[in-house]
Write a protein that binds this DNA or RNA. Structure first.
Lengths: 151, 151
DNA sequence: GTATCTGCAAATCCTTTGCAAGTCA
DNA sequence: TGACTTGCAAAGGATTTGCAGATAC
């Protein structure tokens, strides 16, 4: 594993499926992969627009939709009212999202493997836990828990 | 446990906290509680508007925000691009949401209790698993899994 | 009486879409 | 060349907000 993520895999699969390799698509891919975290459409757009000022955000959305359809990026919903994206191949982990302070704690994929097994066994449901955050309260916010009063 | 849910608890707590009991608020509460499932703002609005045609949907949103702040309703995000709401006190369960066909499978709260324990023990994170759906593929969609080709 | 609530209309935010022009293969 | 892509502008859906009038207590 090196610092540079593997964009090649994705570009190859695009071509292989008959899609064109446009500069916009390449820049969008590179923006996604330079992000160590999950990135929103708006953030991708900002990064791409810095070098190539006349891209349009609708192109970003269209590209993300395509990549999603091909299974090359994942969506994740951290409850912000906006979707974040994640390139296939950059390591997986799950997210604990604090509803109070908004902190996101990354946890190892293995933590939830037994849950996956149970859901598959008992409900024949193949869970994709990478796609959502788990909401709750972090240690700090749990302590200063008090609220509930007016305004 | 009876068929009629307990609205009283919520109205009492509103008064207790110094909020006013308006007809709109009462109707919103009753719409929420007559819903056996989770209900969206739009659905609450439709129900209330049926009897009281000049309510405004912004009142619904403002009421839901208030109740949420007081911990009297929960939000749940089933990945539809819209939030659903659930009155505190109506029974809890978790949701498996099929990403392909959209089917929602309800599972018992106890299924995830060991996960909660692990997250609390290892990460000091108090998970509120009621607030999100778990996404994945249901049995049927897993079988007819094929996709990935163009259009 | 008066601070709290509401309705209305307009604004905002994220995302999608129609269409004509541009471009990759 | 010609189908695939893009930019632009406008539409869309969910939710929020400013404000003046209405109302619960």
């Amino acid at each position: 594993m090196h610092d540079m993520h593997d964009t090649g895999g994705i570009t190859e699969r695009l071509i292989e499926k008959g899609y064109r390799l446009t500069p916009q698509r390449m820049m969008i891919l590179s923006a996604m992969e330079s992000s160590h975290d999950h990135i929103s459409a708006e953030e991708i757009y900002a990064q791409v627009a810095a070098k190539y000022p006349n891209v349009n955000i609708s192109t970003v959305y269209r590209t993300l939709e395509l990549l999603k359809k091909l299974g090359l990026v994942y969506e994740i919903d951290l409850g912000e009212g906006r979707i974040r994206y994640h390139a296939e191949g950059s390591g997986h982990h799950h997210h604990l999202v604090c509803q109070d302070c908004g902190k996101v704690i990354d946890i190892d994929e293995s933590t939830l493997s037994s849950l996956k097994d149970i859901l598959l066994r008992d409900y024949k449901f193949q869970a994709e836990l990478r796609h959502v955050g788990i909401f709750g309260l972090c240690e700090n916010c749990r302590r200063k828990q008090s609220g509930g009063d007016r305004k």
